[in-house]
């Protein structure tokens, strides 16, 4: 018996009817065509399929889609703003933090969850967050550097935003 699933993915609401055994990764890749999320194992041990569910990094192969009914999900397709890449994405490019790119969406989404919670992680904290993420290409060091770089970029963006807000507040234009 198919059941109704209501989820918001990358800001867009979806209403689907699915078999209860359907995994979240299947819904994303097969039903919604969001193939940026990859699966590289069948044993929940590579983390390539990581997405963000209500702010938490989750392996989409290890959770039933119905378990996230009513939740908000962000995939790698939902990070970039209209014209510019997300600072994490840009940091991954600038630091050569991927090669084949197959595990990259999982690494990026885990980084997103990490930096949302801990904006200035140490090398050890990054390693702790990304430890389950297998990558066969990079040897990880360049990924770690990208994450630290992304943290700096996000901080710079935040500082700039608060500066702007402060200026606006001072000039009184934003008072209302």
């Amino acid at each position: 018996m198919k059941q109704q699933l209501n989820i918001v993915v990358n800001g867009e609401p979806h209403e689907l009817f699915i078999e209860p055994k359907t995994l979240l990764v299947q819904v994303l890749r097969e039903h919604l065509g969001l193939t940026g999320t990859h699966q590289a194992c069948d044993s929940s041990s590579c983390a390539a399929c990581t997405v963000v569910v209500d702010g938490m990094a989750v392996k989409s192969c290890s959770i039933l889609a119905l378990q996230v009914n009513g939740r908000e999900i962000t995939t790698v397709e939902g990070l970039a703003q209209e014209k510019s890449l997300h600072p994490i994405q840009q940091a991954f490019i600038d630091n050569w933090a991927f090669q084949c790119g197959f595990c990259t969406s999982g690494q990026i989404m885990a980084t997103k969850a990490l930096l949302d919670e801990n904006p200035d992680p140490t090398r050890e904290e990054i390693q702790a967050q990304l430890d389950g993420h297998l990558c066969r290409c990079t040897g990880y060091n360049m990924i770690n550097e990208a994450v630290r770089d992304a943290a700096k970029r996000l901080k710079a963006r935040k500082d700039l935003e608060s500066q702007k807000w402060l200026q606006t507040a001072k000039s009184g234009k934003g008072a209302k």
């Binding site: 969001l34 397709e77 890449l85 994405q89 991954f92 490019i93 790119g101 969406s105």
Partner: peptide, 11 residues
């Protein structure tokens, strides 16, 4: 930077 970068980091 990798010419395939934008495609690979956006899915």
């Amino acid at each position: 930077p990798n010419v395939d970068g934008p495609a690979k980091v956006t899915g």
